[in-house]
Amino acid sequence: MNFLTRIRSSIGWDKGVGALLVLTIVIGSLVTPDFATTSNLGFVVQDIGEIMIIALPMTFLIIAGEIDLSVASALSLVSSSIGYSFAHGVPFGWALVIGILVGLATGALNGFLVNYLGLQSLAVTIGTMGLFRGLCFVLLGSNPVNQLPDFWTGLGINNIPGTFLPWSFLLIAPLVIIALILLHFTRIGRWTFAAGISSEAANFAGIPVKRFKFFMYVATGFMVSLAAIVYTLRFASASPDSAMGYELTTIAAVLFGGVSIAGGFGTMWGVIFSVIELGAIRSVLQLVNFSSNALQIVSGSLLLFSVAVPKVAEMLKARRETRVKTPTPSLTSSRSVE
């Protein structure tokens, strides 16, 4: 554990995840010859596409000290509204626009409840999670819409001609780069960290915290609708039970990427590595014929692992320091729990 502590303090968790990714790739290519192929790389990109798109705004939210558990239901709602409008005669292109509007509305609702009514984001988004999922079933009943136009579903399934990458790569890569720049090189990113460290102090420093977080939720809604479009085209179907459990996978990926659940700490690099790592592990497991349930187990373990290890390292460090210095009363450790 000493070793882990040192890793965390010297090179940082996010780079550790990067190293783990390299390790996974090496092991994966040793275990199965099918892993390190271009076609499998294309498959992994397609496999983690939606998670990556949602993980980007989720990183901002968690760093700012909030959370959104409704993303998967919102994704499903966007997908359902696309399917619903298309089934009711709206041209598919316009159905996508309607989907994006619905996505923005879901984000705005969450943002309004959290920021302007001042409710806890955890509780609110558990509520909207149920609300959005319920609306999916109200829209579509239990019948998925399957007959989507070939041109569009081709975009979801086929690769860019002459390459091994799916079309969604053209959407995801710029989004990743934009998110990276926004978080680490602009004022928006600094505001995000400030809001996460102390919302009150940020407010006094002149940051319009409420409005800022509101727009963060709206942006989340927008990104969710993009993810929903990718998802709908990839499966060539809009069904009310889409993306079940994606919120957990996304949050697991963000936390495993080194973002602190308490807010104020984390890097976009770590999250990007972590999502790819998730895809790589899943791919290796699938190629060696592990069951599909493995992903649930892996995600759950990663989630627990990623919160437990830093905490244990921190506790050990604190214990070592108290042994060296004057003993601190146990109250200090209890305060940090809040």
Binding site: I67, L122, G245, L248, I251, A252, L255, I261, A262, S291, N293, A294, L295, Q296, I297, S299, G300, S301, L303, L304, V307, A308, K311, V312, M315, S333, S336, V337
Partner: peptide
């Protein structure tokens, strides 16, 4: 154990066990 003694946030811990138990159950 994880919440009380490791001081981890219960939301994250129980999300994790929700996942783990459901995954094992499916398995």
């Amino acid at each position: 154990l994880l919440v009380a003694y490791f001081k981890l946030p219960s939301l994250v811990v129980t999300l994790g066990t929700l996942y783990l138990v459901r995954g094992l159950f499916n398995q």
